[in-house]
């Protein structure tokens, strides 16, 4: 159904965003796989995870090409934009992005994810704001259902906070096609 690459800088919650996504897709009866690539540092360095969501049995969990690129930084965008399938969706965090020419074979959606997170007093919630933008840009899941499951994900971990859902909702609302 979708091969998704989620990338950014270590500490931005890229791997967590991927885990939230598979949690929700799995609850929706999909098969999922999550693989990660990261350097040894806890903060800084590149971090990425690849998420495969499928109705069918998943073959390789390391797809050659992607349908969705979730880029928390411009570096992450630059690293993976060449691996996109035609018609793919690219979601970028415009807070950490300069202006650039986007390739014609993909649709690009942007949101000031880090800006939203800071405004909401939840500076670590930029990943959730970008998830909101991703749900809007791809239409891959229902907005409300995704939000509810996201809330449950943090509650299960004992980290429930209304600010998380706020970041997600704001990201969804403010995301625009570029």
């Amino acid at each position: 159904m979708a091969d998704i690459i989620m990338a950014g800088t270590g500490g931005q919650g890229v791997l967590t965003a991927g885990k939230i996504l598979i949690d929700i897709a799995a609850a929706d009866d999909k098969n999922v796989s999550w693989t990660s690539f990261y350097s040894a540092e806890m903060r800084g360095g590149t971090a990425a995870c690849c998420v495969v969501v499928s109705e069918d049995e998943i073959g390789t969990p390391y797809p050659d090409k992607f349908d969705i690129l979730f880029a928390m930084t411009e570096d992450a965008y630059n690293k993976y934009i060449g691996d996109m399938r035609d018609g793919g969706k690219v979601i970028v965090n415009q807070s950490l992005f300069s202006t650039c020419e986007f390739p014609k074979n993909v649709e690009v959606y942007g949101v000031e994810a880090s800006g939203i997170a800071n405004e909401m007093g939840n500076s670590r919630g930029a990943n959730l704001a970008l998830l909101g933008a991703m749900i809007k840009g791809t239409g891959m899941m229902d907005k409300k259902k995704f939000g509810e499951t996201l809330d449950r994900y943090f509650s299960k971990k004992g980290k429930a906070s209304a600010k998380n859902l706020d970041c997600y909702n704001k990201g969804y609302e403010q995301a625009l096609k570029i």
Binding site: K19, I22, A26, N31, V32, S33, W34, T35, S36, I58, P61, Y62
Partner: peptide, 9 residues
């Protein structure tokens, strides 16, 4: 390392 580090159902 791939099979052991990845998450699936």
């Amino acid at each position: 390392g791939a099979i052991s580090q990845m998450i699936e159902k």
